[in-house]
Amino acid sequence: MSAYLDQERDTPLHRLNPVAKLLVFSCFILTATLYLDVAVPLTFLIVSWLLGWVFAHISPLVLMRRLSPILAAAMGLAVFNTLFYGGPREHLIVALGPIHIWREGLQIGGSIGLRILCVASYSILYMWTTDPSRLVASLMQQARMPYRLAYAVLAAYRFLPILQREWGHIQAAQQVRAAHLSRRESGLRRVIRSGMPLLVSGIRQAERLAIAMDARAFGALPRRTHYIRTHMKASDYAFTVASLAACGLILLALSELGLLRSFLVGVAESVAGAPQ
């Protein structure tokens, strides 16, 4: 599975505390979301490639290639936001019958398209550099997630490959019986037809697993010990603080260059500009 290609490597980004990394990445995504110009999401997109390159030895080209399937979705959103832009407008670029393209709309469309690429880039970089078991351990130990929920997550994670294989079996079994050839079947029925057996077999296995866990006194005590221990080391704090500071510096630099247009200003303008 290509999704897990690089999880096992040992680089600074792999060693980073998973919760700290989630916090920093979420913060970058949030910042890219708060601005309506092209510069901010583009900068943070490039930052994600640099982060992967410098701290995880992942070539930007590999990350870009993984992003290519999202490109169509991002471009679709960009076109949609350009065509249906409803904020203040001054510079008309194209007027073709009912279609009007404004420079302001094009800019915001581009910004939102890049924003989606930004979300995707950080999500992919996150999963490429994070071991799921460490992520859950860290959610328990640093983010104070209740351990019953965390073990449910871990158990569920163990189920992922099992359910994936099961899904293949169900599809194959139904194909053998030519269930997919039935013409008078709505899309909804099709979802139910293959979804139900997956859920039923999953629930059967869940019952067995629950008995095994109960037999080992799962959940009998309010506290528990951990096999995988995660910590917030000095380097984790340093990375978090440095990243957030870099985030602020990037915004400062962009605003000095006159490239910033904040989301809230955009909302205020579009509300004020709506009656026109």
Partner: peptide, 13 residues
Amino acid sequence: TREIIVMAVISVA
């Protein structure tokens, strides 16, 4: 425990 695991499996599926 069964409720927790059943919830987890349905959610993962």
